[in-house]
């Protein structure tokens, strides 16, 4: 009789543990999806900003056709890729980022352009959108890490494998110059 109680108690505890862990995993996965959607919002915003930027800049930068075309091409390529293929998508977006960065460096040579109010507003929007992409990617990766830890670590991994949870994929930065650590000297 006593043994039945003990077994019963263990079964109840196991069921409670299973439900709690499963719900936790679902919560983490939803957060991950939400974080991914956030990146998408910012990437779309960048697609929208680029034609505007090119239009504003074109008149001033007659000798930079190559740079401008590279930006447009990278944008169109990134936009055409499906949103589910994380690997290819992050590569294309990385290329768009570096094409834009090159454009913004070249802009430094055009003082007239830097006095244009319209351009300055666009530049602020673009800089901020780049930052937002970076931050949403950062948050997405943090979320992936949290979920993956839960999926792989004992004891939650048992629940995860029983219910078929897969590991999340990190949004990697494939462009080398973006990865460089800052060189700050402290004196």
């Amino acid at each position: 009789m006593f043994a039945i109680y003990i077994v019963g108690a263990i079964v109840v505890i196991l069921i409670i543990f299973f439900i709690a862990t499963y719900n936790r995993l679902i919560g983490l996965r939803n957060r991950l999806r939400n974080a991914w959607a956030q990146i998408d919002v910012q990437l779309k915003r960048r697609y929208d900003l680029i034609p505007n930027l090119i239009e504003t800049v074109k008149g001033y930068m007659k000798h930079e056709r190559g740079t401008l075309e590279a930006v447009t091409k990278a944008r169109n390529l990134a936009q055409s890729l499906s949103t589910t293929d994380v690997g290819a998508r992050s590569k294309a977006e990385g290329e768009l980022s570096s094409a834009l960065a090159r454009l913004l460096v070249v802009v430094e040579n055009y003082p007239d352009l830097k006095a244009n109010q319209n351009f300055l507003a666009l530049q602020e929007e673009l800089t901020s959108t780049e930052n937002k992409i970076g931050f949403s990617r950062q948050y997405y990766n943090d979320s992936v890490l949290r979920m993956n830890n839960k999926v792989q670590m004992f004891p939650s991994n048992v629940v995860a494998s029983m219910t078929g949870f897969k590991l999340g994929e990190f949004f990697e930065v494939t462009v080398t110059e973006e990865r460089e650590a800052p060189k700050v000297s402290f004196k």
Partner: peptide, 16 residues
């Protein structure tokens, strides 16, 4: 103040 607004939005995203 687009700049301030943007910065707050950036941090909103970063903090989740």
């Amino acid at each position: 103040n687009p700049r301030l607004y943007n910065i707050v939005e950036e941090m909103k995203i970063a903090s989740g």
